[in-house]
Each structure stands twice: as structure tokens, then as C-alpha cells.
């Protein structure tokens, strides 16, 4: 029979196992607390204390119409990019999910190229393509439309951002689409539905979780874009990230830059929470690491 000693020993074993697991987490926790959490806390602190204690930096932010219009433009751009990404990615992912393995691999490699090439490389490519003497403008002149400014405009920013973010939309949609049983739409058609009805009533709802995951990722990443707006956009029509850079990097206004940063962070978290409510119970896939 179990005596008190053996019972105690049983209780001790799982505990030591747990300690080992916490030990494995320790280096990562130290790194994240020291060089991720602490810097973010520093930003919050600076936003309230630099140059003087109080809400001054936030009052400044909301009192300038220029700041408000930058914020609205940032949201509008991120939303527009999200919609364009969806329109582009849905048919792409659909063809990928129905293609032969060979075509599928080609399409996968193609859609992943933006992930495997440096952000700077991609941005440079768009500068070359979109510049006033670039190939797109040459083409527009040949077909008689005439040269239009693409670089240093919002059009350039949206084209560049979309190309960069398409993989984050295609991958989650694709991963859901391959799991949809193709017999379901066939079954709907056999039950009397028109193919378009079967598509909208059966197929689209079944792929909703992938769409949500993709939209969430693209929108949230889109909010924080810095390099592409800085290099492809107009200096007068910046986005929030560039505003932060201006305040901190050029004007050494740490408090103001930090306050904008806090607002951007809150907006990001709020978007996440709103999407999470819509996508409750869905497994969100495909978050990756490109800003």
C-alpha cells in the first residue's frame, strides 16, 4: 500500500519536470522582457513624461489636423490594400488548390518570392518600375494614356504594399481551400443549386476562416508599414510609421513620437480584437514575419 513517503515522491516528480520546462523558457523570457517589453514600456513612459509630465503629447496629436489625416490615410491605405489583396488572392488560391501538383508548386514558389527576397530589394524594384521614366510609364505612353506620376503617390504605395502582402493572404486561404471537400459543391448542384449559388452559398462560407486570417494579417501588417511608404510614397502624404520616424529620428521629439507609437499600438491591438470577435472559433493560420 502507498505510504506517505511514496505519495510525496509521486507528487514531486511532475513538479521537477515542470521546473525543467520553465528553465527552457527562461532565456527567451529574459530576452523578450529586456529587449521587447521594456522598450515598449519605455515608449509609453516617454509619451507621458517627455518633455513634461502629462497628456500633452496626446493633446498635441489630436489637436493637429495633419496628424489626424495621416492616421485616416494609414487606416484607409491598410484597408484598401487588404481588399485588393483579397480580390487578388482568392482566385489565385482557388486555382492553386485545384491545380495539378506541378502547377501548384510553381504557383506556390511564385507567391512566396516576395517572402524570400529582401524588403529593400523589392522596394528598389518598384522604384525602377514605377519611376516617371520607368517601363510602366513607357507602356502607358505607347498605348496613348500618357505618362502619369506613379512613384511618390499613394498609387505607388498601394501597388508596392499589395505585392508584398499577397503571400499573407494567399497562404491561409489556400490552406483552408485544400481541405474543402470538392464533392460538397457537386452535391449542392445535384440538389438543384446553380453553380454560382453553390459557390457563394457552400464554397465561400467554408473558406471564410482562411479569408479572416488573411485579412487580419494583411491589415495589421499594413498599418505598420514604414519602408514602402517612405520610399514609394509622397513625403507630404506619409503614413503613421513615417510620422513616428520624423518625430523621433529627425526632430528628436521623443514624447510626441512615442505617443503616436502608443496610438498605433492600441489601434493594432483594437483591430486584432475586432477581428478576433468576428473570427471566434476559427483557427487563424499563416502569420509570418515581414513588415
Amino acid at each position: 500500500m502507498a505510504d506517505a513517503m511514496t505519495l510525496k515522491r509521486q507528487a514531486a516528480r511532475p513538479a521537477s519536470r515542470a521546473r525543467l520546462e520553465l528553465l527552457a523558457l527562461l532565456p527567451a523570457v529574459l530576452l523578450m522582457v529586456g529587449f521587447f517589453i521594456y522598450p515598449l514600456i519605455e515608449i509609453v513612459r516617454l509619451s507621458f513624461t517627455d518633455p513634461v509630465f502629462g497628456w500633452g503629447n496626446y493633446e498635441w496629436f489630436f489637436s493637429r489636423s495633419a496628424n489626424i489625416s495621416v492616421s485616416i490615410r494609414t487606416f484607409w491605405t491598410a484597408a484598401l490594400v487588404t481588399v485588393i489583396c483579397l480580390l487578388v488572392s482568392y482566385p489565385y488560391a482557388y486555382v492553386m488548390s485545384t491545380a495539378s501538383p506541378r502547377i501548384r508548386l510553381v504557383l506556390l514558389v511564385v507567391v512566396l518570392t516576395p517572402l524570400w527576397t529582401s524588403l529593400m530589394v523589392r522596394t528598389l524594384a518598384w522604384i525602377v518600375l514605377l519611376q516617371d521614366t520607368g517601363i510602366i510609364n513607357d507602356f502607358l505612353e505607347i498605348i496613348g494614356v500618357g505618362r502619369i506620376p506613379l512613384i511618390r503617390t499613394d498609387v505607388g504605395v498601394v501597388i508596392g504594399m499589395t505585392q508584398l502582402l499577397v503571400p499573407f493572404m494567399v497562404l491561409p486561404i489556400y490552406s483552408v481551400m485544400v481541405k474543402v471537400d470538392p464533392r460538397l459543391t457537386t452535391a449542392a448542384i445535384s440538389l438543384g443549386a446553380r453553380p454560382s449559388t453553390a459557390f457563394w452559398r457552400i464554397y465561400v462560407p467554408l473558406t471564410k476562416s482562411g479569408v479572416f486570417a488573411g485579412m487580419l494579417t494583411v491589415f495589421v501588417l499594413g498599418l505598420g508599414f514604414y519602408i514602402i511608404p517612405a520610399l514609394l510614397g509622397s513625403p507630404r502624404n506619409t503614413m503613421i510609421s513615417a510620422l513616428i520616424q520624423q518625430q523621433v529620428g529627425s526632430m528628436l521629439q521623443w514624447g510626441r513620437g512615442s505617443a503616436i507609437g502608443v496610438i498605433l499600438l492600441l489601434a493594432t491591438l483594437l483591430s486584432l480584437m475586432i477581428f478576433a470577435r468576428f473570427a471566434r472559433g476559427m483557427r487563424l493560420v499563416g502569420l509570418g514575419g515581414v513588415r
Binding site: F36, L223, G224, S241, V248, G261
Partner: peptide, 9 residues
């Protein structure tokens, strides 16, 4: 978290 935030932090 937006890269610019990590950057200034």
C-alpha cells in the same frame, strides 16, 4: 507589433 515601435523602443 509594428516594426517602427520596436525600432524606436
Amino acid at each position: 507589433v509594428p516594426g517602427i515601435l520596436v525600432a524606436i523602443g
